[in-house]
Structures are given as structure tokens and as C-alpha cells.
Design a protein around this nucleic acid. Sequence first.
DNA 1: GAATGCATGGTTTTT
DNA 2: CCATGCATTC
Length: 771
Amino acid sequence: MTSPIAEAADPFLAGLNQAQQDAVLATSGPVLVVAGPGSGKTRVLTHRIAWLIEREAVHPSEILAVTFTNKAAREMRHRVEALLGGRDVAGLVMGTFHSFGVRLLRQNPGLVADRLGVLPNFVIYDDGDQVETAKRSIIAVGLDPKQIAPRRVLSRISAAKSLLLTPEEFANAAETYDDEVIARIYKDYERALRKANAVDFDDLLALPIRLFDAAPSVLERYQQQFRHILVDEYQDTNRVQYVLVAALADKHRNLFVVGDPDQSIYGWRQADIRNILDFKNDYPDAREIHLELNYRSTRRIVETADRVIRDNTQRIDRRLRTENEDGERIILRELSDGQHEAQFVVDEIRRVTTRDGFRFDDVAVMYRTGAQSRVLEEAFRRSEITYRIVGGVRFYERKEVKDILAALRLLYNPSDEISLERVIANYPLGKGIGPKALDAIRTWATLQGRTLLDGFIALAPSLEANHSAPDLVGSGRAAAQKVGVVFAELRDEANRLALAELFDAIVERTGYRAGFDQESEEDLERWANVLEVRADMERYDLLPPGESLPTYLEQVSLVSAVDEMEDDPQGRVTLITLHSAKGLEFPVVFIAGVEEGLLPISRAIEADASGDPAPLEEERRLFYVGITRAEKRLYLTLAGGRATYGRWQASDSSRFLAAVPQQHLHTLGRREAARTGPSPRGSSLGDRVRQRSLDDWAPPAAPARTTAAPAAPALPTVTYVTGQRVFHPKFGEGTIREAVDRKGEQELAIDFKRHGVKRLLSSLAPLEVIG
DNA sequence: GAATGCATGGTTTTT
DNA sequence: CCATGCATTC
């Protein structure tokens, strides 16, 4: 071991504080890192991996790192490679729990088929497929999907799977009649999945564990392989994930988990905060390291976050600190309704970007429910501000995209009836096939023990004399025959063709392409989406034949909302749910809808009222997560009421606001609200918060908003060059690092002494050349 | 079997 | 309010 001074000079430790260095260097035995927001945990993870590879000669393939999103995994991989001076770490196993689960199943096809009954060409059912399957199972057990909500059933099934309960175990543990009903549906749901050779998200975690149980030698092999296991966002792991990690780490015991109990926001997905709280019980020799110094946000933001989270009773007491400058006050603004709130956000973003030197992509607008994005989006559309919505209607959820994927999945896995039925229902090729024809073919398939698709193919003209075929006559038979012919051809060609060619064959021969009206604006846009799928597929054609289709389908199933979020040079404002925003950071953050019923969500309020405070505390953590995403400036907005289901609903300001320290708050007036507010409001908690804060308000101490003089409109065009020193009223002195010419202006990267590198437009930034 | 029109109910968060 | 599902009609 080298001396501390030599360590600090080590490139893998450079720039890390003592606690961070400790975390990097504690490479033997279990380690729990409790990392507050902005405390540099990603740096710790990447430096640790680099350290292991370079200094301890651990081969990349001996390291497993689990992240919360694929995007995080990609970025981490790049950072590790950069730390290693560009060295390739291809063997490093890095990804989400789910992608790792798929990997385990794919790597053991024989055993998975043999012991678990899941054939190698399984497909992953997405949310919609799961709902559809659950619905059918409800019907199969003689119930009505309108009486029992498929979604509720699914969430119960998911919870059961997260606890590794089989349908039988679940049935045995049933306490109420409702449980028994769910148990019966669960059983049929599993049967349906296996019959379709499909797995759901929870299976991706549970099946590997069942595989390990059935074949301990497989587990041993992985235990042997993964000398080091790192898990990020450990506070959001559930029981299955815990068991999986614990099993894999059992041999070498080099388990390194990073998390923050205060950022646990997935309790509803069975994330179990005990995993992190009990880590020291599970591993008595565990080293515990705390990262509490926040490098991300201003002191006002950090103190506000700290004060807010202190109201939670179910937490370990600790303090989030920072050495950063005070920064600006948090801006609170109440508007009359959702529309005005959205307009305020848009107007404020315009100011922030034209006057204060921020770019669109410095800004994020966060909200509790996806539904809130709609009003916001409308306001953005009316403005000139470019934006992107993370989540929302996801690309792969679009009808036309799902149609294409259904055909591909069917070709890959002919047992996938949900996809077949989707093809029949949505492709021109499926015209003329109704429930009657489908029924006849299904009967035949069941009798013959063949797939539904085989039924269609059996109807196609064949050289084979009097082979068995479904009992169908007339137009139904003709239509089904056509389907059989086309899919028999496609199936035969699927292995020979490149993915993109297979795509072309599908859209041509099924008449799918012809079904788009080239005159219709809407159709053109949808067709553009379909073509985007094709472009996406081309990238997979680099893989060996036979691997491109499964890899593509798998990738599509496992992308998360955040994964789809690309870094864009054009600069767009990000609209995102608070949940999806976890792990991200932005110079300017708006949290919209800080209202009772929304944040905290009404269900949490109800649970609290009936004696269960846990959901409410999770809401508070969600607010905490939102606050701590902000680096420089934080806006909180709320509406006096909003239209839900087309109905007006008044709302009170969130109880969480009462915790925001007055000295950090700047409440903006509400002239606009009084002008158009549809309904006057009584004296709410929100009013009291507002009133008090108005009384206390003093002009912001930070230079911020008021000092930035409007850029002189007649400013002569200055051409900036690299190395030039400039002065900015807000950011102070800086040096031009980069100057790129854009029609009539320049895009400048300026390294400010106190604020770091900012990207500004020469036409907008009030810059003064000095020296 | 397809097109049209009416009723119903859904918004918490996601891999 | 809007999307989905179902019933009615051709």
C-alpha cells in the first residue's frame, strides 16, 4: 500500500475527498456507501472500477456493476474507459438488473428450457402484453375483467413474484377471498406466459434465482466469475434483487453497494428499504462509508433539501452539507391554474435563457404525474422553446411501432399469440379474419398441440396430400390462407435476411406499408416512426446472423424512459417525472404542481389518514429527490386548481412547502392569478405559507436576476476568439475556451473562474471583453 | 365482418 | 376530457 500522499497523486484517486478515496480503496469485503445526493457516488463507482482493473489486476469480466438505467451503465462504462486512458473494457458486465437477468437466461439455454420450461426463443412481455395476458387469465378463471381490474391483479402478481412466491405458495398464503381469486388468476397467468414462451419483467429476476436453485453449479460458476460486485441505487432494490446479489456475492464477498435511504422512491414496486438498512446485519464485517458533502447544489438548495427530509420520522438522522456558495433563493410561485402555471414556466425559461446565460438543456421541468406534462407541452408548443418529454408516450409504445414489433416477435417466437392477434387485428393482411375464424384455428391448434400460427400455415396450399388443417370455409378460409402463406414465407426467410430486409419484407407483403395514406399528415408522421424503427434495426445487422433479431427485440423490451433520452446538441428543455429524474442533475429545475393531492399524491394522504405514514414519507423523499436535482436555481410552482377529467378541482399548496426555510424562499406575487383565477380560494395552509413568506421577503442577496442588465440591443458584433478574457455580470470573469460560428453569432464555451464552463451565445450573453 | 356511435371510467410513480 | 370498449347497424 502506498503512502497517503502518493495515493492522492494517483490518477485514480485524484480529485477525490477522503471518504471517496476510502470507498475506492476498500476493495476487500462488503462495503456499504451511504451517499447523499450530489456527493460524487458515480465518481466513486467509476474510479473504483478503474482502480480494480488497473491497480489490482482484476479482469473486467470479473466485475459486475448493476445500475438503475442502461444509460447510466453506458455512461459509466465510458467514464471507466476514459480513466483507463481509452482502454477497452468490453468484458465488464454492466447494466440493469433486468438486462443482467436476461443475460443469465440467455447464457444457459439448455438448463433454462429443461428446468424452467422457458425455450431459448422466449420474448419479453411489456406492460401492454402483460395487461392483455392478465385480462385473458381473468376470463379463463371465469371472472370479468370489468369487475376485477387487470392492473390491480398484475400489481399483486408482480408483488408476489418480487417475493419469489410461486402461484402455489401464493395460494397457500392466501388470507382473504380476494387473495384466493388472485391466486387462481396468477396460476393461469403463469400458464399463459409459459404457453406463449414469454416472460414478464419480474421473471427476468426470479427465473435466474430458480435456475440457481435447480442447478447450483451454474450459480457456482457465476460466483467464481464475479470477484467484485457493485450495485448502485441500492435503496431501490427489492427482495428478488437482494437475493440475486447476495447469492452471487456469496463466494468472494466483495460486495459494494451504494445508496441513499432518503432517495428510496420505489416502495410501490416492492423496493425494500430494509435491504440497505439491514446491510450491516447481513454482513457484520461490512465497512460503512458516508458521503455527505454535496458538490452539486448551492447552499440554499442543500439546506432546503435537508430541512424538508428531516420531517420524515422513518429515517436515519444525518445531515447533508455543502461548501458551495449560497446561491439564489428558491423561487415559489402560485398560479391560478395549470395553464397559467405552464405559461409561467415557459416565460421564466425564456428569461433564464436570454438574460441569465442558461441554455435550454440546462433546464428541467419535473412533475409528479405524467398527466401534468400535457398542459406543459401545450405551453411549450406555443412558445419557441424546444423541449423533450422523457417518458410520456414512449416511442416503443406507439401503435405503429408495436405493430412492427409484433410481426417480428411472432417470427422469432411463433408461440406468441398476443403478437399474432395484434398482427391479425392491425395489418391489412389480417382483414377478413374475425373471432369465428380465429376460434376455428385455435380449436385445431389445441387439438393438434400446435401453435396458432401453425394453424394459419396449415391452411396454406401444400404439396403434402390431405394433411390436417383447421375447419374453415369461405371468405374466412381465404383470408387465413393468405396470412399462412405470407408468414410461412417470412418465417423461412427470417434467418437469411438482414433485419432491415426482414422489415422491408414484412411491410410489403403484409400490405402494412400500403395501408398508410401518403396524403395524411398523421399517417406520414406515423410512417416516419416506422422508418425510425428500420433505421434502428440496421445497427443490429452488424451482429452475427441469428443474433440480430433476438438482441434487437431484447433491447427494445428493456429500454427505459431515461435510456431514450439522448444528449442533444441543439439544446432542449427536459420535461420529466420526478421518478425518472432520479440520478440526473440540471442547473435549473422547476418542480411543478407542488400541491396537496399531487405532491403528496392523494393516495398517500389517504394512507396517512388511515394510519400508514409510509407512502407519505415516500412522497416527501420524492420531493427531496426533485429539489436535489437542481444545481443553481430551483423554482417551485403550484396552481390554485386544475382541470382533472375535464372537471375543475381546487387545490391547496403542498404541506411540504411549510418546511422550506423562509430565508431561502422568494415568493413571487400573484397579480396574474387574481386576474383570471376561476375560483377564489379560502385561507389554506398554502395561503399562510405564502403570506408569511411575503412578509419576510427581502431582495435576493445573490446578484442573480436583477443585476443582469438587458443586453444592449445595438451591441456591435464582437468576434470572440479562444483565449480571450471576458466579464459577465452574473458569472464574473472568464476565459473563452471555444468559439463556434453560428449564422450571425457565436456559440461560446467560457470557463468562468467561479462558475465553471458555461456555453453562451454571443448575441445574447451580456459579455464585456477585458484585457 | 366492418363502420359508426354511445357509454364508461381512468391519472401515481416504471423495469 | 379523451381513449377504449361495446352494441347497433349495414
